[in-house]
Design a protein around this nucleic acid. Sequence first.
DNA 1: CAGTGGTCTAGACCACACT
DNA 2: GTGTGGTCTAGACCACTGC
Lengths: 293, 293
Amino acid sequence: MSAQIKKSTYSDIDKKESKIEGEYLPTKKSSLPNITANDALANNPTLKNSTSLPLFSPLYQQIKELILKSLQVGEWQPGESIPSEMDLAERFQVSQGTVRKAIDELSGENILTRKQGVGTFVATHSEEQVQYRFLKLMPDLENSLKKGSSEREIISFKQIPASDFVANALAINAMDDVFCLRRVLSFSGVVTILEDVWLPCHSFKGLTADRLNAYGGPMYGFFEKAFGIKMVRAQERIKAVLPNSVQAELLAVSESTPVLSVERTAFTYNNNPMEFRQGLYLTLDCHYRNELN
Amino acid sequence: MSAQIKKSTYSDIDKKESKIEGEYLPTKKSSLPNITANDALANNPTLKNSTSLPLFSPLYQQIKELILKSLQVGEWQPGESIPSEMDLAERFQVSQGTVRKAIDELSGENILTRKQGVGTFVATHSEEQVQYRFLKLMPDLENSLKKGSSEREIISFKQIPASDFVANALAINAMDDVFCLRRVLSFSGVVTILEDVWLPCHSFKGLTADRLNAYGGPMYGFFEKAFGIKMVRAQERIKAVLPNSVQAELLAVSESTPVLSVERTAFTYNNNPMEFRQGLYLTLDCHYRNELN
DNA sequence: CAGTGGTCTAGACCACACT
DNA sequence: GTGTGGTCTAGACCACTGC
């Protein structure tokens, strides 16, 4: 019932049977089991107390939020499949088309991955195709990094209080402990990237350099498996800088060799920053590639 | 009947009088409800002779291609509205939902812009909101360039034969003539960008520095109005470099100041490269911002 | 073969903008 | 009010995958 009302205004803020459309779903599954869907909507407090603008939102957006919430709490782990569209439609008591539109958006945001004939899966950084999804460095001559011939070495790993700058990027309190690690990446035997990575200790309890080294795949894949932290989005700020003496030595170049400084903040669900890193990229034989649309 | 078949394959590779769409709107809903939409499929020659892979494509993709073709030939100019979804559905003899899906994709690619209650418009680089859509430079402290206080100055403008490098980027023959211009951009009175721009003379007949200077808005908006050339996409390659003596002087920095080198190839419809430029960005108080998804 | 996502249609109603 | 895009539903069929 109340569910119907929401639908009638695309909203969660309504009241009484202005059945303005008892027809979207007549009696229908009313007699049937789940309530979930309507309940889900009915109970979804998302916008209920919103004193700000979006006093309502389309049904599919609400479904999207519900799916995101399930992802957030780990109901479905990275790499796993989520229920079929029909099942979700049943669960939320909406039409398959509405679920589909919600999944469409999540798929567009690289949060879910569809595989025709198989199902819909939670995106992961561990899969071959999307490994290094956030690494935009390309050789000048070829069209993709030869990831097979990449090596990496962790140079240092320590636990320290966050500087104001890092704390701000991670949205934590200054002086909260963070893990700070420095590593070097080489491609085809050529040292190319030097990067410092900061992670909030609170969320990465028990992280050690050994565990990181022991894991073969990409770091974000490790975070998923070891800490259930899934990076869904990142923001980078790029500048041209000169390395200091330490950095230059690690990169095996002179201090007058310009390098790209790439500061990245990576976010998990809910725009929650979980990692900050600064990379120095040597761009003599490669470049940072970006597509503009 | 045959209608069913087409649908059954989502294909265009069909038989019989492919009178190349003499009847997108024929007898139409003549006797029976449909046949129409299926005819659209049957008669659409798009992929008929394709000897390569996609021996078929979904209807909405074909509609998308037809819309793109109309944009390409200038049936609808940048900033103008295109026919309503219902009208297009009528024209192509498919359902509104199918047209909608085609437009959804074009909208996602920033080729069309929807405005609820008003219509669907051809995207343009002249609108306030999307001006400098391809410029990713941001001040470190604020969240967007103060475009109001920007100035630009064309330093040189000439017509020369394309170098191999430029010709390759523009997909033209080496030694074909190109316009080459150099300009400086300042923000809040600070010189920030020095860029060289190459344009194929063939497509920009009659371009002069004066005409460029006379136009107040962004360059891509000018190209739309003066030459009907709409840039829809671009690719950038970023490196950290040191400016040469001439560049350093124009940027008012020393030759040991690292700068971002941003090489951009901009494409019009059909992945047709229409502009190549190399920008040198001073990143002392600003940065190149990129969102990763 | 059964099950999943992908496409297409048809029709209803909602939200919005302009006149 | 009229017309536009936006949402939602329902049902049909197609294409792909894996058992």
